[in-house]
Design a protein around this nucleic acid. Sequence first.
RNA 1: GGGGCCUUCGUCUAUCGGUUAGGACGGCAGCCUCUCACGUUGCAAAGACGGGUUCGAUUCCCGUAGGCCCCGCCA
Length: 470
Amino acid sequence: MAGRPRAQPAVPPLPHGRTDRPRIVGAPRRAMTRVRFAPSPTGRLHVGNARAAILNWLFAHQTGGSFLLRLDDTDRARSTVEFAQGIEADLAWLGLTHDAFARQSDRFPIYAAAAERLKAAGRLYPAYETPEELDRRRARQRARGLPPIYDRAALKLTGDERARLEAEGRTPHWRFKLNGAPVRWTDLIRGPVEIDTATLSDPVLIREDGAFLYTLPSVVDDADLAISHVIRGEDHVVNTAAQIEIFQALGAAVPEFAHYPMILDVDGGPLSKRLGSLGLADLAGQDIDPMALNSLMAKIGTSDPVEPRRTLAELAAEFAFSKIGHAPARLDPEDLRRLTVKLLHMKPYDEVAAAVPGGEAFWLAIRDNLESLDDAAGWWRAVSEPLEPLAADPAVLAAAAALLPSGDLGEAAWGPWTKAVSAATGKKGRELFLPLRLALTGRDHGPEMKKLLPFIGRERALARLGGQRA
RNA sequence: GGGGCCUUCGUCUAUCGGUUAGGACGGCAGCCUCUCACGUUGCAAAGACGGGUUCGAUUCCCGUAGGCCCCGCCA
């Protein structure tokens, strides 16, 4: 924490907010953990966003802190209320509740005030190049093998030149003047990081049309809303250097940072190309269990085995930055399917009661065999409604009918009964059991017969063994 | 072109310079008196390449190759 470069003098604190972490009165001097998930409502959530949301949520809950949902809707042209609602629905599907909510479009005056303070401090300067000029300039730099960094030509403009440009009708955009010195922080995942802001362009904070770009609102909100930890993907690592300078220029406390590696697609390529098919709404439509996604996103790329967890609380208890590796990890959508099936096999009856006929005992008898919840109803029909038995071996079926124990058929009935049938017919193994299964259930696969038989019942079993529809 | 990060079984990873390189997922095989599933036991499966340092390198250093990220008036 100490010893961070503060080459620029700090300007006075934000008039409306705090510049330090809140302290609980009477509590030890320990800042409360406060994290945020900050999607832009320009689309629905996909697995990439979900990872950010989940990791932040888990850390907040593990540390007893709070989780803020912040809609970064500074891009008013692309942001919609429908997407904002969709994102909330996506989070609700995952079970990621938030403790606080903010919307950047509600906070423009705050950003304007911060911008004014940066201007007063000489850190925010007007530039008049058009996007096309900048594009051309970058292309030229690249062609000459130079890094496409803004050359700060606007900084050299005289007052007269500026006046002339404005007279021509040009409106400036505003850039933050970087220190051009190394920025260092200790990343909770990556360890010590050093980025030399001399290798970066001065970031544009305000567009020509007056709109705030992501960078300034993000920093102002993180400071103003007392975010203690910024947990995000490594695509933000370089931004972080510039953002730290902005925190410092605003005299705000710099939060802790944790940048986790990107997720790759199953072939090791960028996931972004496949994000279209990995939207949360799509996954929900494919009956993926939200805890399958939560479990995968919490465990992928970590030293923990990728196993399903039934609750977010378990995942939170197991969360640790130190378990997260530094290399990008591949996402196999098939894992989501596998985890969903495993979760299904773990489901207690009360969670599926509405979708599963037959009661708890029946559920426990069949759940380990299911690929999907929908199959449960089919098995209930197979034991409780008339079906056409399949007769494969009349001798076996006749012996089975003759030897069927009297009275109620419990789970214990199957073993002795089939042994007796085996003794009577000389059949064993597949030749014995497959005809019985076909006759009793009309199918050649399914849950264990000893568990199914009690639900079929003596009377119906007898009829089916006799080849009758029952 | 520049900067950052990375490279161990198919996949995710463990390894404080000395290990039969461990685990998990997936795969395969056996067992669980039938199938599928569950469970269980077992098997196969890895240090990108080239140098250097060292008694000894997967581990430290350099280089090469490959991958990911960033270099936007997007977020």
